[in-house]
């Protein structure tokens, strides 16, 4: 950078539009959201403040509690399964198999679809009336039952299934890039030492690609917190409230229930959750980078 210090002003000038957008659209909106969450606004913003009253209401609301606990179940399962599947797929792709490009495209393809499409496709596939269940029954297995999507206790796993189908390809792509970055000499060394391949991956390769895995985890975690479109398209939050999530709660209160102060309180709570995930991760990575540097 030092070499270009003379042109710094240009750099800042070029960055100005980005900074303006970030400040106005992101920071500004976040502050406004927070301010409204402290008021008693219903349909339109009114600035009658009652401070943390909405948060008090929100945390006591059974609907919010259900949404949060659903999100935790969904998030943990989704991230864990995606990472495991993605890692296994990446390892399999790393074996210099024939037609790698084809498989990579196939595995990554679901990620190119919007969550709405994913949700609709899986809604049809899993619908007991005309999906897998009906198809297998049509083949003569009259008692075959696969109706998780309409069972209140199972529907959340359907959500995980659809989300994993979409997300694990991305994890594979990221981790595969990491695997390709692993020094070939390391592999040669392990071969000379006679270490089995299945031991090398978890013990030697995984720590090397840990930053990649962390990146994938952050991307997945963020998509968990903002999960909305998938839920709307796949289950609509049902059956009952079995798959309600915070983002859907916020959207519903924002317009349909005309309660924007409560909705914004929910949105701020979601932001707090994201920050709580990202900040420790950021410091952990900086700490390990410093350690590596020293």
């Amino acid at each position: 950078m030092a070499k270009f210090s003379g042109t710094r002003a240009h750099v800042y000038l070029a960055m100005m539009p980005v900074w303006i957008i970030v400040l106005v659209a992101l920071v500004g909106s976040t502050i406004w959201t927070f301010v409204i969450s402290l008021t008693s606004s219903k349909l339109l913003p009114v600035y009658k403040f009652n401070f943390f009253h909405q948060y008090e209401l929100l945390l006591k609301l059974p609907a919010w509690q259900v949404a949060v606990s659903n999100l935790i179940v969904f998030g943990l399962l989704f991230i864990a399964i995606c990472l495991v599947f993605g890692f296994i797929m990446a390892i399999m792709m790393d074996q210099r198999i024939r037609g790698e490009a084809l498989f990579r495209t196939i595995f990554l393809y679901p990620y190119a679809m919007s969550f709405v499409v994913t949700g609709l496709v899986w809604q049809w596939v899993l619908n007991p009336g005309f999906g897998i269940q009906a198809a297998v029954r049509g083949l003569g297995f009259e008692t075959f039952t696969f109706d998780w999507i309409v069972q209140p206790k199972r529907a959340i796993y359907v959500l995980v299934l659809a989300a994993v189908w979409q997300g694990s390809g991305l994890v594979m792509a990221i981790l595969l890039a990491g695997l390709r970055g692993v020094d070939e000499d390391l592999w040669k060394a392990t071969r000379i030492d006679g270490i089995a391949k299945w031991r090398v991956y978890p013990s030697i390769v995984l720590p090397i690609i840990a930053p990649m895995a962390a990146t994938a985890t952050v991307l997945l975690a963020v998509s968990v917190v903002k999960a909305y479109d998938l839920v709307v398209a796949l289950t609509g939050g049902g059956p009952g409230n079995a798959t309600e999530v915070p983002a859907k709660f916020v959207m519903e209160n924002l317009f349909a229930r005309q309660n924007i102060a409560l909705a914004n309180a929910g949105a701020i709570m979601m932001l707090v959750a994201v920050v709580a995930i990202l900040v420790p991760m950021y410091y952990a990575r900086r700490y390990s980078a410093q350690k590596a540097g020293a």
Partner: peptide, 19 residues
Amino acid sequence: FSPEKLGALGSELKVLWVN
């Protein structure tokens, strides 16, 4: 009924329906 009240009633009824 306010939209808020209606929304609450609707979602409670939906939960009861699947129970």
